[in-house]
């Protein structure tokens, strides 16, 4: 199987280069990027061919592509790939507007190609362990969840992350979707109402998008769940951020920390402790699943529809920030 990468705007693309190469029988056939310098840089660094344009890469007939462009630029690339009959794994969030996400899902459906949303947390081993307990009924009904997906402000990684047009927003856009998706997956239930509040006190002088956000979701099952999506981990924190959830269930309390498997490292050069992650690579498991689903001609474990649902939740969160009241989905 031949896989290409359309755009390296998202920093996850760098990790995916190695993940794709690690799958037996898969060839990383090439990269393309709107920024020729960036394409050339990553092509040289990784020893991968690079194409002059997305159209050129698609013309070379990959079986599948990874779309890692800026959030607002996912749609045209996914539509181009679908038109070329190529399967797609699209970076999260699937889109910045509900109508775009809907169009992407429809385009792939019509073309008969797979659309998978890059939600690696579905493949996180600590999260999967709890998923097994939930589905086996060992925890009973889930009543509530208190969750956080906080991170550092990503402005220094890629400037477009804090561009309201290209990113679609700030912390709400960046960090609601992972947990919204995990919770839908855990609860087998859809969100019916969203309350959200946001502010721009952190990095207030440096960025124009929201940097702090708190969200409270209500599910059809009756469960309630809060998500802290703030960029509240400072650049001098021991790691980039994290993803944690506490579940209050019929049978008790369950805590999950997706990135707890770390070494604490103190280095003279760094002058502050760092957490070095040694847990299993969820990105690798996600790429493995993408390939396996295409080979087996079955839907992937996490689909374009899952990405669309998460985009709908983010859109409702922004409506709530503006109205000051919960918004129905």
């Amino acid at each position: 199987m031949k896989i290409g990468i359309l755009s390296l705007a998202h920093l996850h693309a760098e990790a995916y280069i190695d993940n794709v190469r690690a799958v037996p029988g898969v060839e990383l056939m090439g990269l393309a990027d709107e920024d020729p310098a960036r394409a050339e840089h990553f092509a040289r660094q990784s020893g991968t061919p690079h194409f002059a344009s997305y159209a050129h890469l698609l013309a070379a007939r990959p079986d599948a592509v990874l779309v890692c462009s800026e959030n607002a630029r996912h749609r045209p690339l996914v539509e181009q790939a679908a038109a070329a009959g190529v399967h797609v794994l699209c970076e999260k969030p699937l889109a910045t507007r509900v109508e775009d996400a809907r169009a992407m899902v429809a385009a792939c459906q019509q073309a008969g190609v797979t659309l998978m949303t890059a939600f690696p947390m579905r493949f996180s081993t600590p999260l999967l362990e709890i998923k097994k307990l939930l589905d086996a009924g060992h925890l009973g009904q889930v009543y509530a969840c208190n969750s956080t997906n906080q991170g550092e402000c990503p402005a220094h990684l890629r400037a477009w992350f804090v561009d309201p047009e290209l990113a679609g927003g700030g912390a709400l856009t960046d960090h609601i979707v992972h947990l919204a998706d995990v919770l839908r997956w855990y609860l087998h239930s859809e969100v019916t109402e969203v309350y959200a509040t946001a502010n721009r006190i952190l990095y207030g002088a440096e960025v124009t998008v929201e940097t702090g956000g708190l969200v409270l979701l209500t599910f059809a099952s009756g469960a309630i769940a809060s998500i802290d999506c703030s960029w509240s981990k400072p650049p001098y924190y021991p790691t980039w951020g994290g993803l944690k959830l506490d579940l209050i269930t019929e049978k008790g309390l369950v805590t999950v920390d997706a990135f707890k498997q770390v070494l604490t490292v103190y280095r003279q050069q760094q002058q502050r402790p760092a957490w070095a992650y040694w847990g299993s690579d969820a990105n690798q498991a996600m790429i493995d699943e993408f390939v396996a689903a295409i080979r087996a001609q079955r839907p992937p474990a996490v689909t374009g529809e899952d990405g669309l649902r998460a985009v709908e939740i983010v859109a409702a969160a922004y409506r709530s920030v503006h109205s000051g009241q919960p918004e129905k989905l």
Binding site: E129, K251, G252, V256, D257, A258, Q261
Partner: peptide, 13 residues
């Protein structure tokens, strides 16, 4: 300060 295991299960039973 963070110091817990990656998962924890505390049951009423």
């Amino acid at each position: 300060a963070a110091s817990s295991a990656p998962i924890g299960v505390y049951l009423h039973a």
